[in-house]
Amino acid sequence: MCVGLSARVVSIDKGTALIDASGVKRKVSAELLEDLEPGDYVMVHAGIAIARITEDAEKETDKIMEALHDGNGTGDH
């Protein structure tokens, strides 16, 4: 339902962030995330930065697969 785009914050100005996703730039609202800084990665939906991205997708799935393999999987990440 919700097309999201992961992008890098280029600059911040009064609640608006300029974001970059493979050379494609757009201004989005940064009002819903505290203390965003240039260089942070964010998830953008419909013109609003809705979350910080803390890791790249590959590392994350590797960790999950390791956890499944170790037989522990119900813990909270």
């Binding site: 097309v3 785009l5 996703a21 493979s22 494609v24």
Partner: peptide, 12 residues
């Protein structure tokens, strides 16, 4: 190209 890919993922 990266740019076209970026626009496509932004706009679905």
């Amino acid at each position: 190209s990266d740019g076209v890919r970026g626009v496509c993922s932004m706009l679905g």
